[in-house]
């Protein structure tokens, strides 16, 4: 009995070692979205191009990407070309111009070409908060039922897209 007690610290330590091992290489920055499995929250936002007020019903009925971007965000510039490429492949993308200036955003799209089916302005970042966005760029995948199935924080590129495109259905 007493002998066994002396090995207790070792046993606890081994358990701890296993936990630490499993956690190695995991990305501590990765944060799953709290909205996975939920529909896109209600909104009324103004379109970037036409100053029209739109809500839920204007979103695509097919599966699509919802991309938060802004002209002040350098990483958005990085991923823009790839978004154009995706749009050319026929992936529907809805853009949310996040806490941005309308003029600058319009200019940006006319220079870099527009990958978005629809661009809505979230000037105050209210919709961003409702979506649990912490910055830009962030890309959500919404399925055909209008449910959010995936969220990616950071620049979209081919490596990432190959991994997550299965969600788009």
């Amino acid at each position: 009995m007493r002998k066994w007690v002396l090995f207790l610290p070792l046993i606890v330590f081994i358990g701890l070692g296993i936990v630490l091992y499993k956690q190695l290489g995991a990305n501590p920055e990765y944060m799953p979205s709290a909205l996975i499995g939920k529909p896109v929250p209600d909104f009324t936002l103004v379109t970037l191009q036409a100053d029209k007020v739109l809500d839920q019903s204007s979103l695509p009925k097919s599966a699509y990407l919802l991309n938060f971007w802004a002209t002040w965000c350098p990483t958005c510039e990085e991923e823009h070309a790839y978004l154009n490429q995706l749009a050319n492949q026929g992936v529907p993308i809805v853009g949310i111009d996040y806490k941005d200036d309308q003029k600058k955003a319009q200019q940006w799209l006319s220079i870099k070409s527009n990958p978005y089916q629809l661009v809505l302005m979230d000037e105050l970042g209210k919709f961003g908060v409702d979506m649990g966005v912490t910055g830009a760029p962030e890309t959500f995948i919404v399925n055909t039922k209008g449910i959010i199935v995936y969220r990616y924080q950071g620049a979209m590129d081919d490596v990432v897209w190959q991994k997550i495109k299965g969600y788009l259905q």
Binding site: L6, F7, P9, L10, F13, I14, G17
Partner: peptide, 8 residues
């Protein structure tokens, strides 16, 4: 681990 083993 080694020292705890020794300890045990």
């Amino acid at each position: 681990g080694g020292s705890l083993l020794l300890y045990g």
